[in-house]
């Protein structure tokens, strides 16, 4: 059994965006804070810190998860992907290009989380239609775009996957 004392920092090792990384976290440290403050990956945004807005969404073992509803110690030994992992070689992914083409990024606050959810959808369900795209987006709040451009961009990117 792993038992971690409160108010102390514990070593957390993860595989993130294809390489291994480690840092220290108290049991109560949110994964979102661990990513931003400990690993310096500030691409993951934090809006509400109680699971409602979706800005902090990352991929945990390939599936979307709210990083504000996870504690860093929970993901010890697991695999994470954050927005920094998408354009890893410097070139934007097809999805990122589609968002740019359709003007689906305005202030950009919601964008990292939305990219992670849609990246998973594209991977898992290349045949997904508008309903599935809207369902994936329903887990995100965007105050700028009105969502239509996001839907169009996602469908455009899906078209390009076959």
């Amino acid at each position: 059994m792993r038992y971690l004392e409160p108010d102390r920092r514990h070593r957390v090792r993860v595989c993130i965006n294809g390489s291994s990384a480690e840092g220290d976290a108290e049991p109560r440290t949110l994964l979102s804070d661990f990513l931003r403050h400990e690993l310096g990956l500030t691409g993951t945004h934090v809006g509400c810190e109680h699971g409602v807005c979706g800005a902090c969404t990352v991929l945990l073992d390939g599936r979307p998860a709210r990083s504000c509803l996870l504690y860093a110690v929970q993901v010890h030994g697991r695999t994470l992907t954050t927005v920094e992992g998408l354009a890893a070689g410097g070139e934007l992914t097809g999805l990122q290009q589609a968002l740019a083409r359709h003007h689906a990024v305005q202030c950009g606050f919601c964008t990292p989380g939305i990219l992670m959810s849609l990246t998973c959808l594209l991977e898992q369900e290349p045949g997904a239609g508008e309903e599935r795209v809207r369902e994936a987006l329903s887990g995100h709040i965007c105050r700028c775009t009105g969502y239509e451009a996001l839907v169009r961009a996602a469908l455009d990117a899906l078209d390009g996957t076959d």
Partner: peptide
């Protein structure tokens, strides 16, 4: 918002839990 302190236990078996 950040939680108050807690200890974190990850049992390996149901009995431990």
């Amino acid at each position: 918002m950040k939680p108050a302190s807690f200890a974190y236990a990850r049992p390996d078996t149901l009995d431990e839990a």
